[in-house]
Every structure is written in C-alpha cells, then in structure tokens.
Design a protein around this nucleic acid. Structure first.
Length: 421
RNA sequence: GCCCCCAUCGACUAGCGGCCCAGGUCGCCACCCUUUCAAGGUGGUAGCGCGGGUUCGAAUCCCGCUGGGGGCACCA
C-alpha cells in the first residue's frame, strides 16, 4: 500500500518550492496502483499560524489540479494520541520529564541512518542528536514528535520532503524505533534556488502560486516546469502533459542537487502549453484570467479575439496588449502614419463595398491593392495596421479587421487619414 | 564552531568505466519563412570546479581541497 502526505505548515501562502515537493508526492501516489496522497496541515506551532492560510493552500493546490484523498487533517488533532504515546515512552524509560516538557532520550553512541531514495545512504553520529522535546510544557506536541507519530498512525509508506528535513530524519527514526513502528521509506528532494543561487525567497520575483497565476501562467505549464526541476525522464523530453508526468515520474530519477528556478524557461513552457490548448479551452483560460484580474471586457468578444493571439503570447498577461484595439478606440502616432495616406485612402474605398467582410475577402482585396500601388505587402499593410490597431504590433491584420467590423474599420481609416494629413 | 548533503554549458538536465574530443531543452546570436509580433525551420555560442589516486581506459569509482546548500529551538 502506497500512501504519502503533503504537509504544509499554515504560515502563509503556498511557496513554489513547497509546491514542487507536494507535486512529487502527488505524482508518485497517482502513478502507483491504489496510491493515496493525504493533505496534512502541520499546525503544532499555534503561535505562527496565519489565519486563512489553510484555505489559501487548498485553493492553490486545487487550481493546480493537485488533489488529495480524504479530509484535510490537522496535526494538532492528534494531540491526545501524542500525549499518551509520550507518557508511554516515559514509563518505559525512553523519555523523561524536563521542567514540565517531555524529552526523548537519544542514544549517545553509534549511528542512525537510512537509505534515502534520492540521496543514497545517510548516517548521523548519535552523539550529534540532542534529546528533543516531544511534548511542550503546555501539552502541545512538537513537530519532531507529531510528524512521525502521525506518519505511523496514518500508515505513511513514503516520506517525500525537502532536503531541509534531512537532519530531522535521524531523530524521527529514533522516535519511531522507540515506538516500535515500522519505518517509512524516505526521499529527500533538493531545494529550489533563486536566480542568484540562494534559496528561493521574497527577493526573487514570483514565489507563490497566486503570483504566478496573476502573471498569466497556467497550471499545465507550472506543473510541467516544476516536475522538470530536479527530475528528468530521459535525455530529450521537455514537454509533458499531466498524464504523462503521472505515468513517467519516479523517485529514483529525482536529483539530489539543488535546482535554480528559471523564469525564462517557465515562460517558454507556458507558451507551449497555451498553444497546445484546444481553442475552446484556450478561450476559457483567457476569459477566466481576465475575470480574475478584474478586467471588464465583453466575454463574447474576448472569446472571438482569443484565436487571433493563441500563437503569439507566452503568458495570459499579454493578451490585453495585443487585443486592446478591439475593445477601445485607438490614437495612432501620426509620425508612424507618414506617407501611408494613399494606402489608407485606397483601402477605405476598397473595403467600403466588400461583401462579405471576412478575413479571406479582406486579404484578397488588400493584396490586390498593394499590387496596384506597387508596394511590398509589408509596406502596404503596416500603415493600415497602425491606423486600425494603433500599434506596430498586432494580431494578423485581416482577421483583426474582420473582427473589428467594416464600420469601425472604415471609421479608423478615415480618422488616420485626417491625422496623417 | 559541529553535523549532513550537493557539484556537467548562463539555466534545467542526459550520462550510472570504453557508445562522450559530452547529448537534449531554455536563453543568446545568425540565417530562412513571413502582413507586424510571435510561432516554425536551419545553423551557431557555451560545460564535466581544482588536485591527487584506481584502471589498459574516468564526466562516470576513491581521497583531499574549493565552492554552494541545509541543519544544530518547548519553529516546522
């Protein structure tokens, strides 16, 4: 029976490095027959608990598509069991009271070690292990007691966590041994570092799932990127769907060395996944994002505009810059219109009677016009683009005009002619 | 200070003794395609931290050094 747990502490938003650890747990469990993945909130330090953070963690994981089995558990709910177990250890002489707290009696010589799935054999000299507090004087268990106890009670088979827990492991192994529990398999993944080589922190741009979401990254890309940070399937595959990740993930191929979070690669992957989306789903993503951001753009027009930029943007945040001209009037820079007037006037005439007003027809007419004026396509189209979209950069001209509609197109051509003159 | 871990292009990585004068991807540069921007195509740039071993042979194994990370709480 495979059972793992994701164990955030409720001290704030979900950190991107933590998410990767959870993702490893989740991929591992979902890839095994009958594997289960629990969500446990490690809240034994009541003083540091931040209100709402549990809800925020659940929301972020759900948004990423990382789910869990059963109810969310809270470590403090096992307070009674922890106290009883600690009592028992005292009775057996394996722990002792110390000014109201209960401390574990660590062995003085020998070594404590384990075979880590990602790091290989690790041994600690027991002399290095201090007598850890199991239960505080106010009765609350500490992390180093509650965590292994709960792992035991829940039948956790694999403990997959960050390398910052390596030095806790020998202590927890000793506690588990004293309790007569079977040891789980341990796998300690490395840390995620910022671009400066330091552990990811507030200084490194986006560091929470919420921030990534605001910046226009989508779950498929984030999951793909995070999975590839410290893990590789082979020597060439970079793009994975969620299903492929579940199918191929293995702890044995997780790297022990720290990885740097590279926003450029994340952006590239985001573009790849955005382009891979079926048009309908892509439109869903775009409008959901705009709603999230509080942009009050007409939904049906957003959906129609979506296909025009699916090939062009890397993050959802770029959508508005490309399509703003469809939602608002434009004010083209007159200097950019210079010399374009003949094209503007001719286009206005040519498009005025065009029926039907579709991208295909618009293209046919405008290409013909460029030929008559003996202009290269780019020379003829750029003034039109600027006149109608107000920018040198836009989605395809013909599709853009179709969407804008004849009336508005002609109006803008006229306005531009006035401005250029 | 003590303990533990890590070390291949700028970044993510493949490599588990000969297939590697090191492969893929992002980035960057050039060219092609092209209605702009992208996308796509082609080519290029760039790396085994250092020093000792072991071996016929080392990116791969061992030791040391250096560098980086983590931990040493009645935090998690």
């Amino acid at each position: 029976m495979i059972r793992v747990r994701m164990a955030p502490s409720p001290t704030g938003f979900l950190h991107i490095g933590g998410v990767r650890t959870f993702l490893f747990n989740w991929l591992f469990a979902r890839g095994r027959e009958g594997g289960e993945c629990l969500l446990r909130i490690e809240n034994t330090d009541t003083g540091r608990e931040v209100a709402e953070s549990t809800e925020q963690i659940k929301r972020s994981l759900s948004w990423l598509g990382i789910d869990w089995d059963g109810e969310v558990r809270f470590q403090l709910d096992r307070m009674d069991e922890c106290q009883q177990l600690a009592r028992r250890l005292v009775d057996e002489g394996k722990a002792y009271e110390d000014e109201g707290a209960i401390r574990f009696r660590m062995p003085d010589d020998g070594e404590t070690g384990w075979d880590d799935v990602v790091r290989g054999r690790i041994d600690f000299p027991n002399a290095q292990l201090e007598d850890v507090v199991l239960v505080r004087s106010d009765g609350r268990p500490t992390y180093n007691f509650a965590s292994p106890v709960e792992d035991m009670l829940d039948g956790i088979s694999h403990v997959i966590r960050g390398s910052d827990h390596v030095s806790n492991t020998p202590k927890q192994i000793q506690v588990l041994g004293a309790l007569g529990a079977e040891l789980p398999v341990y796998a300690h993944a490395s840390d995620v570092l910022g671009t400066d080589g330091k552990k990811l922190s507030k200084r490194h741009g986006a560091q929470s799932v919420d921030e990534l979401r605001e910046q226009g990254y989508i779950p498929a890309a984030i999951v793909n990127f995070l999975a590839r940070l410290g893990w590789a399937y082979d020597d060439k595959t970079e793009v994975f769907s969620r299903e492929e990740l579940v199918e191929h993930f293995s702890l044995e191929r997780v790297s022990a060395s720290p990885a740097v979070f590279d926003y450029q690669k994340l952006a590239w992957l985001n573009g790849v996944h955005l382009r891979n989306l079926p048009p309908e789903e892509y439109a869903d993503r775009v409008s959901a994002y705009l709603r999230d951001q509080g942009a009050e753009w007409k939904e049906d027009l957003v959906r129609k505009a979506a296909p025009l930029v699916q090939e062009k943007i890397e993050t959802l945040a770029e959508f508005q810059a490309y399509t703003r001209f469809l939602f608002e009037d434009v004010s083209p820079d007159p200097s950019l219109l210079d010399g374009g007037s003949p094209v503007l006037a001719e286009a206005e005439i040519a498009l005025a009677g065009l029926e039907p007003f579709t991208a295909d027809q618009i293209e046919r007419v405008l290409r013909g016009l460029a030929e008559r004026l003996e202009l290269k396509p780019r020379e003829a189209f750029q003034p039109l683009r600027i006149a109608v979209t107000g920018s040198k950069i836009s989605p395809g001209l013909f599709e853009s005009l179709e969407l804008l509609g004849r009336e508005e197109t002609l109006r803008r051509l006229r306005a531009a002619r006035g401005a250029a003159a």
